[in-house]
Design a protein around this nucleic acid. Structure first.
Length: 705
DNA sequence: CTGGGCCCCT
DNA sequence: AGGGGCC
């Protein structure tokens, strides 16, 4: 129904017509255009923007931090800071070094784990949703709301003689001399905004800014006019002013770095430049739809609807680092990420159907370069496991999947250097009929339902009690007490799980017994002992591998240490875990389990004929015919005139780039001088090496001007 | 040009 | 699968 104002921005054929319609509708006199469907010509849109969100959450957790300059640190960056710190010159996204130098007393709190922020963020969205269903999230700390209906209802109820007024600021005006009666809807909107900000503060302890305007763009722009903990409304007659006040196109939401650059190449740097630039010319560089959108934005026109965000469509977890260059480290990191992510998935309750692994490789020429990813479907039973009882089992199943994807991207026979790993679940199964009706799911629904009633009942504002529609199976949230202010917001969630999870103490017995469930393994066949990490195994010298595979040892071999393979010496392979890795002894054990469980029984029959999945897991090179082969340096990739020895002595970066170049040449005969990425890409798509071809593309870009 | 997400659109 | 955008 809100289809009204556009929303087909990218529909190429119809776009132009629908745009013209919607724009004229929006631009023309609001009051007369009611006829054109259910969409109000005059929307009232709110934008909420919490003050220094992460810092606020930390200050709620520890009120003593309110008095001191506080920064929230991720890696070596201060991602945000409280206003005490800002007064001393600290800014967002400032390096820790600079921040400390500006403000020596700066107190830093680690903020890499987003759990608390995420939880608080959703509490806020849920709170807003309890007043009005049209809430759209933008990041963790911003929300749009379309309160048109709410406003209309109030308007209908207000007496003829009502004296309208604005709450908070009115952009570019002294609120004294604005005639609020000329803008009754916005005026009412400003009161609703004030009430909501108050509710946010009393219920969650958070302060923030709000913007009140007629579309999302303007609401967002105006919300920042008065910064901490204030609100601002924008009258339609001041749209030109606020757009003109922006220092450059980059300040327009929707115009990112890349777009700004392209605009600049056209000579467009100010908003006004963009406003005046011929649409046709703009279309030549950006295409019709994008050009229109950009131009609209520059004029303050934005007919996009507030689309209720609902539950996230994907959950991901990532970590960045200076350098990661061994398969073992990758494996451990992936496992670590997966463990926490699976835990989150479990609370979410929707079984994911696809898994994605993405990495960022270090490249000397530019390290801020893009990521590469591979994704694959998640077997149904695994997906169910994530959400049902045993998340640990799920991790065990997922690690091999992840490693398989990893090896699709990274050739482990060559040096590699990663700076980021991300794991992501998406394609979340929305209706969990398949979940197999454990009691837990139903209990969640009842619980959260009761909560939503709580929230809506004690407020005159509330129109709908529909908070639960996307509440994650975080029954948890429901723990918010009637008066719930703050303290019990956190941490209480966690504890419903053990009750279910205790069923299986995760011990090596588990994986061993699983492995032994195939006692019919023929004697004398080659197989990895159940407690040997295949990744580590792969890295061993061939001789050691043979020893390990010798039949006599199959069941007696103790586990390999998790430390670097170089440190392993054969006779001393004992169960001793390297101290560094003890922190989570499941690390290795889980992987063992993974191997045992994910492998069809027949994988044990011979080392050389494993299922593809396992081969990838082991880091073997797999040819296109599916024949596994152990890694050889630069397998067959050298042009004839290249001396392998010389090559091997080159820096890894150079090696990789050269390799990419060669592979590129193999894939595409013509040397790619074309600047357009889109031109050539169809050609290299078919090859199995498409991934590497793509990378070659990227590397070649470095040599462009 | 950093950090950990999330989104949409090819 | 990647690009761009947002915070």
């Amino acid at each position: 129904m809100d289809y009204s104002e556009g929303e087909m921005e990218e529909d190429e054929t119809e776009w132009n017509n629908s745009f013209v319609d919607s724009v004229t509708a929006a631009a023309s006199d609001p009051s007369l255009n009611k006829t054109s469907g259910p969409t109000p010509a005059h929307r009232v849109i709110l934008h909420f923007d919490l003050d220094c969100f992460y810092a606020q959450v930390e200050m709620i957790r520890n009120p003593a931090l309110r008095e001191v300059p506080l920064g929230v640190q991720q890696k070596y960056i201060v991602v945000t800071c409280n206003y005490v710190a800002r007064d001393q010159g600290v800014t967002k996204l400032m390096s820790v070094a600079v921040a400390k130098e500006k403000c020596p007393q700066l107190v830093l709190v680690k903020g890499e784990d987003l759990t608390r922020y995420r939880e608080m963020s959703y509490k806020l969205t849920e709170l807003l949703t309890s007043y009005c269903p049209l809430v759209e999230r933008l990041g963790f700390d911003e929300n749009f709301m379309d309160i048109t209906k709410m406003v209309e209802r109030r308007l209908a109820e207000t007496p003829e003689s009502y004296n309208f007024s604005f709450q908070g600021h009115v952009y570019n005006r002294l609120s004294a001399d604005v005639k609020a009666s000329d803008h009754p809807r916005l005026a009412l909107g400003s009161h609703i905004a004030a009430e909501l900000r108050d509710a946010i503060h009393s219920k969650l302890g958070l302060t923030g800014c709000a913007g009140v305007a007629t579309n999302k763009l303007l609401a967002k722009l105006v919300s920042g006019a008065f910064k901490p903990n204030q609100q601002t409304s924008l009258l339609p007659e001041d749209i030109g002013d606020i757009m003109g006040s922006l220092s450059g196109v980059r300040k327009v939401p929707g115009v990112g770095h890349q777009t700004a650059k392209r605009l600049q190449a056209l000579g467009l740097v100010s908003v006004k430049d963009l406003q005046l630039f011929p649409l046709g010319d703009l279309g030549k560089e950006f295409g019709g739809p994008s050009a229109q959108r950009l131009k609209n934005l520059s004029l303050g026109v934005d007919d996009s609807a507030v689309v209720p965000t609902g539950a996230p469509q994907s959950l991901s977890d990532e970590d960045s680092f200076k350098k990661m260059s061994t398969t073992k480290d990758v494996l451990e990191k992936i496992q670590e990420l997966l463990s926490s992510l699976v835990e989150r998935m479990h609370k979410d309750g929707r079984p994911p159907q696809t898994f994605r692994l993405t990495i960022r490789r270090y490249s000397a020429t530019n390290k801020w370069f893009g990521r590469e990813s591979r994704q694959c479907p998640i077997p149904n039973h695994v997906g169910q496991k994530i959400t049902s009882d045993s998340a640990d089992d799920a991790v065990v199943q997922l690690v091999p999947l992840a490693m398989k994807l990893f090896h699709k991207m990274v050739d482990c026979s060559a040096a590699f250097h990663l700076t980021l790993i991300n794991v992501c679940f998406s394609n979340l199964q929305t209706r969990g009929a398949a979940v197999g009706g454990k009691g837990s799911i139903t209990s969640f629904f009842t619980h959260s339902t009761s909560q939503s009633q709580d929230a809506s009942s004690d407020h005159q504002l509330s129109a709908h009690g529909v908070m639960t529609q996307f509440t994650p199976p975080q029954k948890t949230v429901a723990t918010e007490s009637p008066r719930g202010s703050g303290a019990e917001l956190y941490g209480l969630n966690r504890k419903q799980r053990p009750a279910v999870a205790v069923k299986k103490p995760p011990l090596q017995k588990e994986s061993c017994s699983t492995t032994r469930s195939h006692p019919e393994i023929p004697p004398g066949t080659h197989r990895l002992p159940p407690n040997v990490d295949p990744e580590v195994f792969r890295l061993l010298p061939e001789e050691l591998q043979k020893e390990l595979l010798s039949p006599a040892d199959t069941n007696s071999l103790p586990g390999l240490p998790t430390c670097s393979p170089a440190a392993v010496n054969v006779p001393n392979i004992t169960t001793n875990k390297s101290p560094q890795s003890v922190s989570d002894s499941r690390n290795i054990k889980d992987v063992e389990g993974a191997v045992a469980k994910s492998d069809p029984p027949d994988w044990t029959t011979t080392v050389n004929r494993r299922p593809e999945g396992l081969s990838a897991f082991l880091g073997e090179n797999v040819t296109e015919e599916g024949r596994p082969s152990f890694p050889r340096p630069a397998d067959c990739e050298f042009p004839g005139n290249v001396d392998p020895t010389v090559f091997s002595e080159l820096p890894p970066d150079v090696q990789r780039e050269l390799m990419s170049g060669w592979k590129q040449q193999k894939a595409v005969l013509k040397t790619p001088s074309s600047r357009k990425p889109g031109r050539r890409s169809p050609m290299i798509k078919d090859r199995k090496a498409a991934g590497k071809g793509t990378q070659a593309n990227n590397l070649l870009k470095y040599f462009k001007p």
